[in-house]
Amino acid sequence: MDAGASFEGTLDHQLDVRVLRFRSRPDSEEPALLALELVSAGRTHDALEIVDAALAADPDDVDLLLGCGVAAVRTGQLTFAQLVLTRAAKKAPEWAEPLRWLAMVLSMRGREERAAEVARRAIAAGATDDATRELVRRHERRVALDARLARFRDDPEHEEPALLAQALLDDDREAEALEVIATALGREEDADVLVVEARARRARHEDARAEDALRRAIALAPDWSEPARLLGTMLADRGALLEALPIVEHALARNLDDTTLVALLGRIEDQMREAGISRPELADAHLDDLLSTLDRIDPIGDETRRAIAPSEPVRKRTGWLPRIARRFFGMPDPSAPSARPIARA
């Protein structure tokens, strides 16, 4: 038997002896201390038995009430925990511990406004833990968000709908985010709003509707890489590689410095290679976009372009696009052909 197991067995035996002694002679043990030690050892039901017995003798013992509340929280008895912690907080209003635990329980029971109020009292009494402060911050964010939503409902011109919808989505308020999105799109198609809609639809596992929103966003803002990255990722995740490839290539041709697109294209090519899927030729439209992008990059002159640009048939079939992106934006292996070339048609 290892030393850790032996020590735990000894500790359990010692606690057993103390519990039996308390049952026969309650004044032989400090009940609050024994209850907390039992909770620490994972014996919360025994802790509740000790606290209940002691409270019967002294209902106003704050240490006991706190110990009882902590034990109840650990066993998921939140209603009982709220009752005893409320009593403890009333008996010792200047002590932060009962208030801190009470705020936690109220939050766990979905009573956020009351939890924030109690958390503020705990902080005023000296609580410094991050969890208590976060309860207050989360409530303040929710109040501010409620005010923004109310303004939007009153007059949509008062709020930027994409930012508001994203804030609601970040707060797990998907239904209200979609309400804002529907109102905004009913007034005017907007790429930012459509991207947020796609995130909301994905959170609801409505992938077909998410993909549709991203396609519409790409049509509205073809130079913006975010909707293409999201759509390309979704398509690659479900194995639609030949559908994902041109979307990502097209976006990369317009955004050569986007390292996330370069990485995504590499992932798609790897998946195609593993599946034995032939790589189609790079579309002429993508080549035009690429050359237009290169024209906007000052360091690339005609001589450099001639040195790096193969003939059109070659560049359409050799993954020229991602290598150009790697060459000019510090990515590794800028020009060497892959050791594992993609199967060609």
Rank of each mutant, 00 (worst) to 15 (best):
G266C: 06
L264C: 02
R23N: 13
E37S: 12
E269K: 14
A56R: 13
H286L: 12
D52M: 10
A127G: 06
E174A: 09
A81Q: 00
A213H: 02
L164Y: 04
L252A: 06
A103H: 11
A81Y: 05
D223T: 13
D155P: 12
T128P: 02
R111L: 13
A182L: 08
D258Y: 10
P299E: 01
A125R: 09
P156W: 11
M104E: 15
E29N: 07
A309V: 08
D171Q: 10
L33F: 15
V70N: 06
P310S: 02
R173S: 03
D295A: 14
T260M: 14
R199G: 06
I268Y: 05
D61A: 12
R229T: 11
Q82W: 00
V143R: 10
Q271V: 07
V62Y: 13
A47D: 07
G232L: 05
A198I: 02
L185R: 13
L287R: 14
R323I: 01
L235V: 03
R43N: 02
V39T: 09
L11T: 08
A116P: 03
P341N: 10
A217N: 00
A103Y: 09
L36P: 00
R74E: 15
A217Q: 06
A57Q: 15
L168T: 03
S24G: 05
N255S: 08
I297F: 06
T128L: 08
V193Y: 05
T86G: 08
A124L: 12
L55A: 13
D60P: 01
R315D: 00
H250A: 14
E303K: 02
A236L: 05
R74Q: 15
E176V: 00
E159D: 07
A213E: 01
N255F: 03
P31A: 09
G110C: 04
P322E: 04
D190Y: 08
A253S: 12
E174D: 05
R43K: 02
Q14K: 10
A47F: 07
D289V: 04
L34Y: 08
L231N: 06
V180P: 01
A177S: 10
I308L: 03
A251D: 01
L169I: 04
L66R: 14
V196R: 08
K90F: 04
F7A: 15
A162S: 09
R202E: 13
L106A: 05
R21E: 14
A32C: 03
Q166N: 14
I218R: 01
L256M: 07
D146C: 06
V143K: 10
A263W: 12
A343E: 08
A89E: 01
E160F: 06
G239T: 11
L11E: 09
A35H: 04
A200G: 01
E189A: 14
R279V: 12
A175L: 10
F7K: 15
